Simulated assay, not measured.
Amino acid sequence: MGAISYGVSHAQESPFPAEEQSPISPDKKWAYIGGDAPKLVKVATSETEIDFFEQRNPGTAPAGEDPELLWAPDSKRFGFNYSPMHAHHMTFLSIAFYQLRGDKWVAVDSPADETKGPQLVQFGKGYLPKHFDPRHCAPEWDIMKLRKWSDATTAIVYAPCYGRTSGKLEAGFLFTLKFDAAGNWKIIKTHQMAKKELEEEQ
């Protein structure tokens, strides 16, 4: 089998820094291949380690929201932003987290695995400002995305709230997740985005 060439398209400007867009892991051992059949392969052998279509059965993503993989800087964890299967009238985006154990990648606790109903309602329980009620958010816009890794064990997750009647972005939150050695995480900080920050999201 010939060597696979991995490249990054710059045709569409990304909101994330270039180093977090790279399909190659920081240690150069793993590569993410997108497209209709997204997968993770071992660079040395080109063998498929994770078939995301098989494991996650992603649905149709909205325009400009193709699945993406963001690496932790030590190459021991990554988050996979994707659109799980959902009703056609919804916009549903979530995250699957994976951790390297030995030489195998295993799925660890992820928001979409735990939530029943809108992710912000369940995920933010006990971590949202008292004056904010996530049940006022439009349920047909159920979005949670990994924004970046600030270090090897700390992930920043973005969750917007669109108004039920206006359909406009009315609030947004950045959750800081801290992972332990076993891959378990907990929310250690919640930041409600300011109006200027929200304007930059639109």
Results as ranks from 00 to 15, higher is better:
residue 136 H to S: 15
residue 80 F to H: 05
residue 156 I to W: 07
residue 135 R to P: 13
residue 89 H to E: 06
residue 116 K to Y: 12
residue 153 T to W: 02
residue 79 G to I: 08
residue 73 P to D: 04
residue 137 C to G: 13
residue 156 I to P: 07
residue 125 K to N: 13
residue 112 A to T: 05
residue 133 D to H: 15
residue 126 G to S: 14
residue 129 P to N: 09
residue 98 Y to K: 11
residue 83 S to C: 05
residue 89 H to Y: 04
residue 154 T to L: 12
residue 115 T to V: 13
residue 141 W to H: 04
residue 80 F to Y: 09
residue 79 G to R: 08
residue 138 A to D: 12
residue 98 Y to G: 06
residue 122 Q to E: 13
residue 113 D to P: 10
residue 81 N to C: 02
residue 76 K to A: 11
residue 141 W to Y: 06
residue 90 M to I: 00
residue 109 D to Y: 08
residue 81 N to P: 00
residue 149 W to M: 03
residue 82 Y to D: 00
residue 138 A to K: 04
residue 124 G to F: 14
residue 115 T to M: 13
residue 94 S to V: 01
residue 131 H to M: 13
residue 88 H to G: 01
residue 92 F to Q: 02
residue 74 D to G: 01
residue 140 E to P: 10
residue 141 W to Q: 02
residue 81 N to T: 03
residue 112 A to I: 09
residue 129 P to H: 06
residue 123 F to A: 06
residue 96 A to W: 03
residue 107 A to F: 03
residue 144 M to D: 04
residue 154 T to C: 11
residue 147 R to W: 10
residue 139 P to K: 07
residue 116 K to F: 13
residue 99 Q to S: 05
residue 102 G to R: 10
residue 140 E to K: 07
residue 126 G to I: 15
residue 103 D to N: 08
residue 125 K to E: 13
residue 82 Y to G: 02
residue 136 H to E: 15
residue 73 P to N: 05
residue 75 S to R: 08
residue 135 R to T: 15
residue 143 I to A: 02
residue 113 D to A: 08
residue 141 W to L: 07
residue 83 S to Y: 04
residue 116 K to C: 13
residue 81 N to Q: 02
residue 131 H to D: 15
residue 98 Y to F: 12
residue 110 S to L: 00
residue 157 V to D: 11
residue 135 R to V: 15
residue 80 F to N: 06
residue 155 A to V: 01
residue 138 A to R: 04
residue 104 K to V: 12
residue 146 L to G: 05
residue 85 M to W: 00
residue 141 W to N: 01
residue 115 T to P: 15
residue 107 A to W: 04
residue 92 F to S: 03
residue 80 F to S: 06
residue 110 S to H: 01
residue 109 D to N: 08
residue 149 W to A: 01
residue 138 A to E: 10
residue 104 K to L: 13
residue 117 G to N: 12
residue 133 D to I: 15
residue 133 D to R: 15
residue 73 P to A: 06
